[in-house]
Simulated assay, not measured.
Amino acid sequence: MKRLVALLFALALAGATQAQDGPAAEAEAAARMLEEATRALDDASAARDRVKALTQTVRAYEAGLQAMREGLRRAAVRQQALERDLAAREEEIAQLLGVLQSMSHTPAPVTMLHPTGPVGAARSGMILADVTPGLNARVVKLRAKLDDLVVLRALQDSAANRLEDGLRGAQAARAALSQAIADRTDLPRRFTEDPVKTALLIASTESLDGFASGLSQIAADPTGAPGPAAELAKGSLPLPVQGRLLRGAGEADAAGIKRPGILVAAPPRALVTAPAAATLRYRGPLLDYGDVAILEPRSGLLIVLAGMETTFGETGEVLPAGSPVGLMGGLEPDDDGIVPARLQDPGSDWTQTLYIEVRQDNTPVDPAQWFRTDKDD
């Protein structure tokens, strides 16, 4: 019996010796993603195309931070479930430990005696032999749950520094990207913006529809660089931002207003990129849409991206596919070692919205015909 109780305490009180599969493994993988993004940021300064390298770096940070938060959410949910289960069984576990501990203090010669003699001793030994495997199984399950708790708590403690470093790295990458775009001079231009015509158009328009239609009146310079290739496969364009579809074309919002574009939920400070090679027809604030970028992948086709806090580039530039167009607004979560309650909701940090409208020959069409909206990007 002493050996059994010693086994119980050894198993129940042992430290975590195994890494938990699931949330812990995901968090470790996310940490490696952030480390790789940090190395990419260091290498980007020497890259031939700094804008492209830094764009990939910012995307890598976004993916790593998202994966880290998702791992922490799952870890927090798992920890709560374990704590509730152990709390519900607290009395049962305490009774089991108390009985076994009291039996362990009984001198060994006494445990070999039985009031009815050798036959009773033999019978009690057989009963104990039958009970021991069941107790061992319960001890193993208890040890596994305690180990899980130790791993999950250690994970959340260690994640604080990793998240903080990742957030600093992402901010540095965005700042470097903004500077690289400002320094870029090698992009071809189809035309140079006429600020007077643009200002008059903004002043005279009362809707996004009217402004987009009016852009056709600001003709591109026929002597400028050729436009991007016109080959576009419908339904194959990636979403311009790492996000998920929030509302489809023609669906009413909370105020009952219907718009011909789609609405994509995205994390704060998420990078917005050109889904295809396109001419930048307009960038800047417009009405109540925030900063807007209007791209022209080919003649007669416009992609309107509205709701950003910052936009990049110069009107008239021909942007390669995947080029930075802007950044979403908002503040990134100030994460610490204790997972906030909001992190347990998978959608709680997707607080920004990007409005995407596609216009063909001045007529709005469903963006779902052009973009891959059936999964997160």
Score class of each variant (00 low, 15 high):
L302S: 12
F312W: 11
L286C: 05
S323H: 15
G290P: 04
G316H: 05
E309V: 07
A278H: 06
A274M: 03
S299C: 00
T279V: 15
Y289C: 11
A306V: 13
R283Q: 15
G316V: 06
A276N: 00
E309R: 15
G322D: 02
V318S: 13
V304H: 02
G316K: 02
T311N: 05
S323Y: 15
M308N: 08
V304Q: 04
A306T: 12
A277W: 01
L286G: 09
E309L: 13
L302M: 12
T310S: 08
V292Y: 07
S323P: 00
G307A: 12
P285T: 11
G290I: 06
E309K: 14
T315R: 05
P285S: 13
T310V: 14
D291R: 12
L295Q: 05
A276L: 01
R283T: 15
A306W: 11
F312N: 00
P297F: 10
L295T: 08
M308Q: 14
L301V: 13
E314I: 03
L286P: 02
A321F: 00
V292C: 10
L286K: 03
F312H: 07
A276F: 06
A276C: 08
T279R: 12
A278C: 11
G284S: 03
L287P: 05
V318P: 00
V304N: 09
P275K: 04
V292Q: 07
T279S: 12
L295C: 11
G300I: 02
M308D: 07
